[in-house]
């Protein structure tokens, strides 16, 4: 019986001591700022498109860091970004949130210049200053700077901005992943059957 009491007492005592050490360390070595936000921000595609519901990539990074938003709200980043975020934060990768939009091919804004009335609304909307123009003057998009974020389309009162997919060139083209299955892979038809059964 004594032994039991001694064991409990000594373990409690040790727990208190280590707890105190840990508590002190947490205060003493507290990391100022929140570098995780920077790390998350590095992984985001920086289109500043706001499709996640935040005004830009960094606010979304902050929201992820504060765990107020899931990691799957970034359509331009797509699955690659989700995977990278999941790796960084050690959480499960989620499928892209359909409400936030769909992961699609890269697009770039083009202004149909003869229809532009020079209202400057798109200039104000562009997060990366990629639209050139002045009041009552025709505007145009600096193609190399456009991130394809889509934010200029909505404000245009005359609807003269098109989002056009970036053309594939010999340089940007690459081979597709071989699509045929390995003979021992689960065959699509069978898997559909399996899901029905389940």
């Amino acid at each position: 019986m004594d032994i039991l009491i001694y064991a409990i007492l000594s373990l409690t005592f040790m727990a208190l001591i280590f707890g105190a050490i840990l508590g002190y360390a947490a205060k003493r070595f507290k990391v100022e700022g929140n570098p995780i936000v920077d790390q998350i921000n590095e992984l985001l595609p920086q289109t500043q498109c706001g499709q996640c519901g935040h005004p830009g990539c960094r606010p979304y990074a902050e929201a992820i860091a504060n765990q107020t938003d899931p990691i799957n709200l970034c359509p331009p980043g797509g699955d690659t970004t989700i995977k990278a975020l999941a790796d960084l934060l050690d959480v499960d990768a989620l499928p892209l949130d359909a409400e936030a939009g769909v992961d699609s091919i890269r697009k770039i804004a083009y202004i149909r210049e003869d229809e532009c009335i020079g209202c400057t609304k798109c200039i104000q909307a562009c997060p990366v200053d990629a639209i050139l123009g002045a009041a009552k003057q025709m505007h145009t998009v600096i193609v190399n700077e456009c991130t394809g974020c889509d934010l200029c389309v909505e404000p245009c009162p005359v609807d003269c901005i098109d989002m056009l997919p970036v053309a594939v060139t010999k340089q940007s083209w690459h081979w597709q992943k071989p699509d045929h299955l390995i003979a021992t892979d689960r065959q699509p038809k069978l898997s559909a059957l399996g899901e029905d059964a389940a």
Binding site: P45, Q46, Q48, A130, T147, S172, W173, W175, K177, P178
Partner: peptide, 28 residues
């Protein structure tokens, strides 16, 4: 080889995208 070509293409694309993202971030 097709697997490698695919991965190489993706790597090049990613490198380009991260360069663009860095640039966009600076401008933003």
């Amino acid at each position: 080889v097709q697997h490698y070509r695919y991965a190489k293409g993706k790597l090049r694309q990613q490198a380009l995208e991260s360069r663009q993202a860095e640039h966009a971030k600076l401008r933003f």
